[in-house]
Amino acid sequence: MSTLEAGWYGETLAYELKDGVAEVCLHRNPCNEIGSLSLQEMESFCTALQNLQQPSHAVIIYSNKKAGFCAGADLRELYERSQKMEKAEALQGVRDFLERIHHVLNVIDGTPQTTIAAVHGVTFGGGLELALACDLIVADKTARFAFPELRLGLIPGFGGIPRLKRDVGNAIVRDLLLTGRSFNAAKAQQVGLVSQVVAEGEALRVARTTASQVRKFDRQTSATAKKFIKPIPREELRQEIDLFCDLFLRPEVEAGLKKFVESKDAQPYLP
């Protein structure tokens, strides 16, 4: 079993403990799309995090892909796998995946360390949901945020709606969800989603500086405060999985996925 203390390098991510900070680097081409291997490796990280023996005060999650932090779920894998199965089996597969990714994000959300997502570029769908599981988001000026799921006839399924509702006003949640549009880091900070906006390329450095600041305070106090301030909306998270599954078998979803996967035009990521 891999440990944070020893560090680990996988196909989609790497993690290590540096001066009390657990750092996770997402590195799957092209933009850290979350598929079954990513999920497996995230689960490995969560196990390592929960079994950490050495003191740790922060977790930083970042990406080394130029395109951005994470473009969301691996839609190609989702489409291709669902095409090979009977509908009931495909739906069960989707539910299983969602429950596993929810567990991962709940671990990150609830871990006693202060968690920081250092984001840049595309931070869409599941990528935004991963960032939302963290306590703080540090975004560089290139970051864009979106929940494009409606474009596929779906809603966010990795816990994005309850977590976004936890952090920002309902009007912003409706804007993102119902228009499927993206907005930039300045707007994200304006609405309270992002803690700091920094120059291009500086998000990781600033996240590390923030982690150093966090280190000054008593861990037990920080963990207690975090648990009080940031309850995990478990009931709504479960409801979100159910709603997603209710929508998934609709022909509009298959058509939306097919269109995205087979698109050869220049605009699949535009609404």
Binding site: N184, A266, Y269
Partner: peptide, 15 residues
């Protein structure tokens, strides 16, 4: 450019 890079351009223009 592709659509991801178009979004990049959009961000630059907005800023």
């Amino acid at each position: 450019i592709d659509s991801l890079q178009t979004l990049d351009l959009l961000t630059k223009l907005e800023n």
